[in-house]
Design a protein around this nucleic acid. Structure first.
Lengths: 191, 191
DNA sequence: ACCTGAACACCGTTCAAGT
DNA sequence: ACCTGAACACCGTTCAAGT
């Protein structure tokens, strides 16, 4: 009994997406091209179009795999914990947030990310669905900016200006989630 | 006395950015290329590189012009009003949010958008600076997703699925700002 | 100071044809 | 079913040279 299912071709969608994620993490979104991906797979660029309709289609599949890293929704979980889980999934691949932000728009229904966040909101909240969407949009905006600064810094000149990126970004994220939590009726008062 | 200042060349940065904004609004960010911009200016592509170091440099200038549409910070203003002003500036050009999101990362200091939002937060708030940044990140994430869906819908198949985009997006935006407002101690209770 | 001309090293996508 | 080969219509950027 073979360990892998029978395939006539050399690659399937699942495998290609895995290699694409590898390239994304190593070289970043601007260098994740269909041609480089084809080279990595030792295949002609046109071969990719048998598996995917377009680069958009490929990126949507990549986006799904990034979001699949989010743990399942846990009712009654802390919102800060749930928000961190979503952010960490985006941070787990270079330019992950931008990939999701660029391809999430076309998706119709609710995403796994929204489910995890909604489960951490109080059931008494009038519009928990809208609130979960808003929280996700904050996380996507925040993480996209953070990852872009990472990218910019890596090949930029050493800047003498004050820029403690790590602490500052974490503080902004915590502040945003704190505001949203209190607005939702959670952790009502810090002082 | 001439109406325009003396220039030896045909174009300056200001003028080029104006034409770039025009192309952006008409064709969208993916079709705002250096070559198309050059064609529009009746110039060779290489001529643009006398005025701008790179396409990134050009897009940063475009981003600044979009953000310049935000009215000056008004202390004590309503947060919802200030947030709408920022969102409207982003919406005033096609793909405006994505342009700002993609080029804002490299900017070091405070932006005009953050100033306007901070002025609408209570002075008593402990970390008003962090809060203003978080609100801006929500607006950028939200508006980027909205504008992407606009783009996708325009040349997509007519979908029979429920998608009242207008009302839904506005509701999510209002819900997000409502949460952030209440979290900041404004409009403490709706019910 | 401002721009041309020409080149370099790439892109995404299509499509007939092979196996 | 899955991939090759070849082409089409593009990209951003550099750089010597012109005016």
């Amino acid at each position: 009994m073979p360990m892998t299912p029978a395939r006539t071709g050399r690659h399937d969608r699942e495998h290609i997406v895995g290699i694409a994620l590898d390239l994304l993490d190593r070289y970043g979104l601007p260098d994740l091209t269909m041609r480089r991906l084809a080279t990595e797979l030792e295949v002609q660029p046109s071969a990719l179009y048998w598996h995917f309709d377009s680069k958009q289609d490929l990126l949507a599949a990549v986006s799904d795999r990034i979001l699949a890293r989010i743990p399942a929704a846990e009712p009654g979980a802390d919102l800060l914990v749930a928000a961190h889980a979503v952010r960490d999934a985006l941070l787990s691949y270079r330019d992950g947030a931008e990939v999701v932000l660029s391809s999430a728009a076309l998706r119709p229904g609710r995403s796994r990310a929204e489910d995890a966040l909604r489960a951490a909101l109080p059931t008494a909240l009038p519009d928990a669905g809208l609130a979960a969407t808003a929280v996700l949009q904050f996380i996507l905006g925040h993480t996209t900016l953070v990852q872009q600064r990472m990218h910019g810094e890596s090949h930029g000149a050493a800047d003498s200006a004050v820029d403690p990126a790590d602490g500052e970004d974490a503080a902004v994220f915590a502040a945003g989630i704190a505001l949203l939590s209190r607005g939702a009726g959670l952790t009502p008062m810090l002082r």
